[in-house]
Design a protein around this nucleic acid. Structure first.
Lengths: 187, 187
DNA sequence: CAACAAGTTGTACTACGGTACAAGTAGTAC
DNA sequence: GTACTACTTGTACCGTAGTACAACTTGTTG
C-alpha cells in the first residue's frame, strides 16, 4: 500500500515540481520581458527544457498564465489570511505588506502587477484576479463597514499604485499605515 | 510664390491628415485591444486603409507608437501649460484634469496609460514618457519646493493611479484637490 | 523481463506580423 | 502634354509563436 502509493506519488511529485519550475520560469520572464514576452518557447528556454514540455503541463498559454497568476495570488492570499487571523494591528500588517512590495520585493511585485493587468485583456485570468481583490476586501472589511472605504483600501493596496506612490523612497510601514488610515477616514 | 507654396502645402496637409487618422486609429486599437493589439495590420484595418500605407507614414511599429504617445502627451502638455499660465487655483486645475480622466475621459485615459506603461519596455517610448512626467513636475514645482512632495504629486497625477483610486465613484474635483493638498502637506 | 503509464523530445503545420518592394495612381509644375 | 513627386496598393519574404503529434525514454508494477 505504502509502496504503491509512494510510487504514484513519486511521479506526481515530479510533475508538481516541473509545474512549479515552469511557473517560476514564467514569472522570471514576466519580470524580465513583461507579460507580452511570455511564450511557450521563452518560458521553456528560461526553464532549460523544451517547449513541448511546457505544453505537456500547460496545454495553452492561458493555462500557463492562469497558473502563474494563481501561484502569486495564492501566496498573497495566505499572507492576507495570516494578517486577518492575527491579533495584531491589521492595518499595520497591510502597510508592512505594501512596504515590502515597494522595497525588496519591488521587482516581483511589478511582475505580479503585470500579470493582473493582463487580466483586463485575458478573460481566463479574470476570476483569479477577482479572487485576489476579494481577499484584500475581506481584510478591509475587518476595519470598516463603509463599502466606499473598502474599495479605496483595496485600490490603495494595489501593488503598482503603491509602487508609484512610494517611488524609490524608503517605504516606512508606519507612514503607510497613516496613509491607509486617512483613506478610511475620508469617508 | 503663394501658389507654389500652397500646392506643396496641399500635399503636406493631406499627409498630415493621414498621419493624424492613423494615430487616431492606433489609439482606438489600444483602447479596444490593449497596446499589445497594435500591429500595422490592425491599425490599417481600423483606419480603413492598407497596411502598406501605415508603413509609408510610420516605417516601424516603434515610430507609430512613439507618434501615438507623443500625440496624447502633447495634448496633455498643452493642458498642463494652460493651468500653469493661469491665475486660478493650480491645484484645483490639476484636480479637474484628473477628475476628467476618471470620468468621461476614462477610457481614453486608460489607453494613454497603456501606452505610457509600454514605455517601460520599449526604449523608444521612454523620452516621450519622461517629457510627460516632467511637465507635471513643472506644474508641481509651482506649488512647493520639496522634491519628495513634487514626486508624490506626479505619482498621484498618474492616470491609472487616479482611475484606481477613484474607482467608479463620482470624481469630485474639490475632493481630489484635498487629496492632492494632503499629499503635499505630508512632507 | 514484459507491459504500461508518465514524462520528454524533435519535427512540422499553420497563422500572424514586421518589413521590403515593385508597380500603379494622382496631383502639381513647366 | 510631360516630367516629377507624393501617395497608394498588392504581393511576397521571413521570422516568430501556438499547437499537434508521433516517437522515444524512463520509472513502476506484476
Amino acid at each position: 500500500m505504502a509502496g504503491e502509493q509512494s510510487a504514484v506519488d513519486g511521479r506526481k511529485v515530479r510533475g508538481v515540481r516541473r509545474k512549479a519550475q515552469i511557473i517560476d520560469a514564467t514569472l522570471t520572464v514576466v519580470h524580465r520581458d513583461g507579460a507580452a514576452g511570455v511564450t511557450h518557447r521563452t518560458v521553456a528556454k528560461e526553464a532549460g527544457i523544451t517547449a513541448s514540455l511546457t505544453l505537456y503541463y500547460f496545454a495553452t498559454l492561458d493555462d500557463l498564465l492562469v497558473a502563474a497568476l494563481t501561484s502569486v495570488a495564492d501566496a498573497y492570499t495566505e499572507r492576507i489570511r495570516t494578517i486577518i487571523d492575527s491579533d495584531e494591528d491589521k492595518l499595520l500588517g497591510l502597510a508592512e505588506l505594501l512596504a515590502e512590495s515597494a522595497g525588496p520585493g519591488r521587482e516581483r511585485a511589478l511582475a505580479e502587477r503585470e500579470l493582473s493587468t493582463l487580466a483586463a485583456r485575458r478573460p481566463a485570468l479574470r476570476p483569479v484576479a477577482r479572487r485576489w481583490r476579494d481577499n484584500v476586501a475581506e481584510l478591509a472589511r475587518t476595519q470598516t463597514d463603509d463599502q466606499d472605504a473598502i474599495e479605496t483600501l483595496v485600490a490603495l493596496s494595489d501593488g503598482l499604485c503603491a509602487a508609484i506612490l512610494l517611488g524609490d523612497r524608503e517605504a516606512d510601514p508606519a507612514h503607510l499605515r497613516t496613509l491607509l488610515s486617512n483613506a478610511l477616514s475620508t469617508h
